[in-house]
Design a binder for these strands. Structure first.
Lengths: 196, 196
DNA sequence: TAAAATATTTAACGCCGTTAAAATCTTGAG
DNA sequence: CTCAAGATTTTAACGGCGTTAAATATTTTA
């Protein structure tokens, strides 16, 4: 698996050939089938590893302050991705291709991650930062969408990690500003301008 | 090419085998190579066709009214996709995989399409609908992002065309509301609630 | 009508994921 | 310690894929 990680990181998932992998791990191809399985199984292990790492990165984030909460989530992810950028890019591409982030499943990845921004939005509404003219569900879904799009654009190689961070946070603040009460909105305007 | 379109529409791009294609077009495989080229060339023709159709769909849209302009753009696209949903889904997936929408190229697809919402935002600012606290470039880019994400989610099969329309338009209105002047903002709130 | 140019097909190559069956190594009872 | 039973690894091959050189058939041109 270490050899697979390295190959995927350097050359992408499609470049991973079982014969090459066997050579670099000093075994033969059927041994890989015996120990791990075929290519889809390798993919599943990579995706499982990805999700574990993301969960670890998102654990114990203080959500008491709205802006800090969102920024911390994104910063933690950016830091995680930076530890092995090629690998995480490849892992996300593999995940995207295998429909990892489909919306329907109640217990799926999407449902799990979209719940966080929705909860923070509810909190912000309770604090009077948001007007409540737009439902927390709609707002949270689009906030998560901002992150998802930036993440995809980064993993497709359209831009680098610093820009992933900028785009994500700008998107989050933009969504919040849509429903923000006057003072909070002005604060968001400043932050968005600073991110340009 | 008609046979290729049909196969891609029904079974996706990966399911397109040159031998099957040759059989269904009543020629042999090397004839395909002679007339069209290899698999990447077929992909390029599909993508070219896709872009042409999109251009046609977006031509002659009245941009004098802000909300109507955005809604018309999205509705025209949704109508186009509806004419052969499987095919357009497959074509977009092929396009995404070949890096069709990369951001950097000055003359690329991204630069071309992102220019439209930016222009409409400038117009809205001039009309006093937007405050101008957020730059038209930032706003336009995120508006285009809302559409892009919804389009990707649709083409990945995460939701259907009606929801593509809903998600796109909600995203656009959300971005606009972030920088909207009071009256315009209230109008957008109503539209967003209605779309829920 | 014959030769030149073009178009199509035959037949094969190399690469891929995958797997049955043989060979090797490990384990445990007598 | 020995040797059969079990688990592991390797050998060798299969079928399917995109691709292409070379032979064949067709069309065009002089």
């Amino acid at each position: 698996m270490a050899a697979a990680r390295q190959t995927i990181a350097k050359e992408g998932f499609d470049a991973l050939k079982l014969r090459d992998l066997a050579t670099s791990a000093d075994v033969t191809v059927p041994t890989i089938y015996n120990l791990i399985g075929g290519k889809p199984d390798i993919l599943n292990l990579i995706i499982g590893d990805l999700l574990t790492k993301i969960d670890e990165a998102q654990a114990n984030i203080d959500t008491s302050e709205v802006e800090a909460a969102f920024e911390a989530q994104i910063d933690r992810l950016a830091e995680l991705f930076a530890t092995d950028e090629d690998y995480y890019r490849a892992a996300f591409i593999a995940g995207d291709r295998s429909g990892l982030f489909e919306h329907d499943s109640e217990t799926g990845v999407f449902a799990k991650f979209v719940a966080q921004p929705i909860a923070i939005c509810r909190d912000a509404k309770a604090k009077g930062l948001l007007l409540g003219e737009i439902s927390s569900e709609q707002l949270g879904e689009h906030i998560y969408g901002s992150y998802r799009l930036a993440r995809q654009d980064w993993s497709n190689g359209y831009f680098d990690l610093p820009q992933f961070r900028r785009q994500s946070i700008t998107g989050v603040y933009l969504c919040l500003a849509a429903d923000a009460a006057p003072d909070f909105r002005i604060r968001l305007f400043r932050k968005i301008s600073a991110l340009q």
